[in-house]
Simulated assay, not measured.
Amino acid sequence: MNKKIKDLPDLDRPRERMLSMGEEVLSESELIALIIGSGTRELSAIDLARVIYQHFDNSLFRLSRATLEDLEHIHGVGPAKATSLKAVFALARKLIVEEALEQFTINRPESAAPYLIQLLSGKTQEEFHILLLDTKNKLLRSSQISVGLLDRSHVHPREVFREALRYGTAKIILGHNHPSGDPTPSPQDIECTKNLIEAGEILGIKIVDHLIIGHKLAGDSRQFVSLRQLGLINF
């Protein structure tokens, strides 16, 4: 039977190591052990944390995108541990978005890509967001408009421009993700963008780009595409 954390020397226990040396010295597995709090009869919290981390190929990104069902498939992980892990990664994503909002200035439309990648990469459903810019191209706010396939029924100009009018911005960037990982625009992506550009012209609100976010696939280094860069639409 494996040792329990209480049986380890103080300097081998994650909580004591953090208290004496700081969180930076802890490994990924040790941090996960602190989150889940306890192990099983057979495994200490640290051993179970290693199992969880290895289950997702020692990738924090894969772990951060795991569903509750994915987590609960691991022996020893029940609803309490699974929801604790999900909550931590959800907070981390919100922190990244909040920090970006405070300091993000868009020098050119495609420079919004890192922000949208943090927001959308790895999502299992398509999400459509808009970025509202001030006159100096500082990001004022991002808003989720819809979840689901991108088409007229899910992305209506009324919803898109309501946010722009509420915050008094004259420029917006569109962004959505492709859960498949391939950011190549579909005919529906292009048609939807054209419709929104036309609606924006009537309201005096300029759409400056539409970015599609994927994730890196074998043989394809692209993580996003810019419809403006591709020249598929006149913005």
Rank of each mutant, 00 (worst) to 15 (best):
H178N: 10
G200C: 04
E99P: 03
S186A: 06
R162N: 12
E102G: 05
R141Q: 11
L139D: 05
D12R: 10
L232K: 13
L60T: 13
E191C: 05
M1Y: 11
P183E: 04
I212L: 03
V88Q: 04
E69C: 07
G76C: 08
K216T: 12
I173F: 08
I36Y: 06
D10Y: 11
L132N: 10
L11K: 12
I233P: 03
L217I: 09
E42I: 10
I197V: 13
A100M: 00
S59R: 04
R13S: 07
L48D: 02
D10H: 06
S64W: 11
H129M: 01
I212D: 07
L131T: 11
L116Y: 10
S27K: 14
E127Y: 04
L116F: 14
L95Q: 05
P79E: 12
A87V: 14
R62S: 07
L196T: 07
I173G: 00
V97T: 13
R141C: 09
G175C: 01
E110Y: 12
S146P: 09
H156P: 07
I46L: 05
D70A: 05
P14T: 08
L150T: 10
R65C: 10
P79T: 12
C192K: 03
L140V: 12
S29I: 05
I5F: 10
L43K: 15
D220Q: 13
L211R: 05
I74R: 01
E99L: 09
A87N: 12
I117Y: 08
L48G: 04
G76F: 08
A170V: 03
P9D: 03
G148A: 07
S27D: 13
F128T: 01
A87P: 04
S64D: 14
M18W: 01
F89K: 13
L26C: 09
I190R: 09
R162L: 14
L165T: 07
E126L: 00
K171I: 02
A33E: 05
S221M: 02
Y167R: 09
L211K: 04
G231T: 05
A66T: 03
